[in-house]
């Protein structure tokens, strides 16, 4: 664990969820930066280099999947673990998220306890370079650690 409070980028456009997640996660000792659409998520990630990204998939402008793909292509932030959040639990959703480069996938409504456990898991797993869980990823040069 880093000695500073882990910094999480929350990319989400629903205000009630934003507030709930931020009150909860800051009370649990995390620090938060916010983005309300995919475009701003990419910009905020570059600027703050968060320890982890929580990415809502249904967002205006650039959607979450596209934002994750772009994050994965940016060498500065490609290593940050990404947890994808999606409201539509459609079959194939999980694969899509993981293919885009998310490390983990939670369907909404998310139980906050489970969210926090997922965050802990991801922060604990990737102290340095962290690969997407799926083998289908095309990110070159990233070692698929989970496969070992």
């Amino acid at each position: 664990m880093p000695c500073h409070a882990p910094l999480i980028l929350l990319a989400e456009d629903n205000e009630a969820n934003i507030k709930t997640f931020s009150y909860y996660l800051t009370s649990k000792g995390y620090e938060l930066v916010l983005a309300r659409n995919g475009e701003s998520a990419i910009a905020q990630a570059r600027r703050h280099r968060p320890d982890l990204v929580l990415m809502d998939i249904q967002m205006p402008k650039v959607d979450g999947l596209e934002a994750i793909r772009r994050l994965r292509c940016d060498p500065v932030i490609a290593h940050s673990p990404v947890i994808a959040l999606t409201a539509l639990a459609m079959p194939g959703d999980a694969e899509q998220c993981l293919q885009a480069g998310a490390n983990e996938y939670l369907s909404k409504p998310v139980r906050l306890k489970q969210l926090q456990q997922a965050i802990q898991r991801q922060l604990g797993a990737g102290a340095g370079v962290l690969a997407p869980q799926t083998s289908a990823t095309s990110s070159p040069g990233v070692f698929p650690r989970e496969k070992l």
Partner: peptide, 18 residues
């Protein structure tokens, strides 16, 4: 659907949002 606020001030400021 469950929502969370960590203080009274937080609720009073955000009651419309929730």
């Amino acid at each position: 659907r469950l929502f969370y606020a960590s203080s009274g001030q937080a609720v009073l400021e955000r009651i419309d949002t929730f």
